[in-house]
């Protein structure tokens, strides 16, 4: 990896540009599903779609912030479920008010992420293996403490937030929240010193270190942020389901967490992120999943199609990039 070309982030039109291919795939898929099943574009289905999309987007962000520094986080799902159960416990058993419980639960998410980052930065061990281990550590601890019992007597306002509709009845406030996080991340990576330094760390760690970037601290910060975002995704799931389930997250989040950012053009080797691309990548994941359900293809075949579609999309992205010299794609 030492010979990698320094791949500094380039400015690009906010959302489109490289992601035109993704938009085309999305529109085609949307048209296909609508023609097969007219209910696909109904106001209710769009609302439901938006809720899932919000969660997929935040899961993608959670992975993206770590990919930016050149690492990866396999414990996204485990941190998510820890925050879910912590939030549920604080609301239902301790009886804290919803905002305080959520805030405290997110602190736990950040702390678990920080632990990942600290271990990686201090030991110098590959983030893959550290987070693989911590994923099992976290979800193991969660199962030991909760005995895998769901908490389903949460305050009513939680489920009410999940049911709330704004913007003409087809937008969920959860989607608006995901968008807001996206805007904040764009500002963070474009204009803040810490954001720029995080990208520099991912692009070339040694060069960044030589230039005075506190590389270790940036890695730790990225993991802590990833933990908080995984927690946000977890809490959004709680609002959607109306209960804190120990079966949320885990390995189910692994594939979506990578495919959003990677389809969106983030380099696995680090140094480049695309917030808009991650959103589009998440939209693809959500569309495929919900389209297959609407078309009545059994739940059992879902994994196959998800895998195949996503493989096809990654290949398409890759070759589109190879064929058009003007949009130089970073190697996925």
């Amino acid at each position: 990896m030492t010979d990698r070309v320094l791949d500094l982030p380039r400015r690009q039109p906010i959302v489109l540009g490289q992601q035109a291919g993704l938009v085309v795939i999305l529109v085609l898929l949307g048209a296909l599903f609508t023609s097969k099943s007219p209910g696909f574009l109904s106001s209710f289905n769009l609302f439901v779609l938006g809720r899932s999309l919000a969660i997929d987007i935040v899961i993608g962000f959670s992975q993206m912030v770590v990919l930016a520094t050149g690492g990866m986080n396999l414990s996204v799902g485990s941190i998510g479920v820890c925050v879910v159960m912590m939030g549920g416990y604080l609301m239902q058993v301790v009886g804290l008010s919803v905002p305080i419980a959520c805030a405290l639960a997110l602190v736990l998410g950040g702390a678990l992420g920080w632990l990942n980052g600290f271990t990686i930065a201090r030991s110098g061990v590959n983030s893959f293996i550290v987070t693989l281990a911590s994923a099992n550590l976290f979800s193991g601890a969660m199962l030991i403490l909760t005995k895998a019992t769901p908490l389903n007597a949460l305050p009513r306002s939680v489920a009410a937030f999940g049911q709330m509709r704004i913007g003409g009845g087809w937008v969920s406030p959860m989607l608006a929240m995901a968008m807001a996080i996206g805007v904040a991340l764009i500002i963070f990576y474009r204009y803040s010193v810490i954001g720029r330094q995080s990208l520099a760390t991912g692009a070339n760690q040694r060069a960044a270190e030589m230039s005075g970037v506190p590389v270790g601290r940036r890695v730790i910060a990225a993991h802590a942020l990833s933990g908080v975002l995984a927690g946000v995704a977890g809490l959004l799931t709680v609002a959607r389901v109306g209960a804190a389930m120990p079966a949320v997250g885990g390995q189910d989040w692994l594939l979506p967490s990578f495919l959003g950012p990677v389809l969106g053009g983030a380099a696995l080797a680090g140094g480049f992120v695309s917030v808009g691309g991650t959103m589009l990548g998440a939209a693809l994941v959500t569309t495929i999943r919900s389209g297959l359900l609407v078309m009545g293809i059994g739940n059992f075949w879902l994994d196959l199609f998800l895998g195949l579609f996503l493989l096809a999309a990654v290949l398409l992205q890759r070759y589109r990039g190879a064929l058009s010299p003007r949009s130089r794609m970073p190697r996925v």
Binding site: F300, D303, L304, G307, L311, V314, R318, R331, V332
Partner: peptide, 25 residues
């Protein structure tokens, strides 16, 4: 394809699991 093996096998893992669950329910 030059796509990272991690991503490739993550996607094929989903596909293989899908075949498994789809056939056996």
């Amino acid at each position: 394809t030059g796509i990272n093996g991690f991503i490739v096998t993550l996607a094929t893992a989903s596909a293989f699991t899908g075949v498994n669950l789809g056939l056996t329910k």
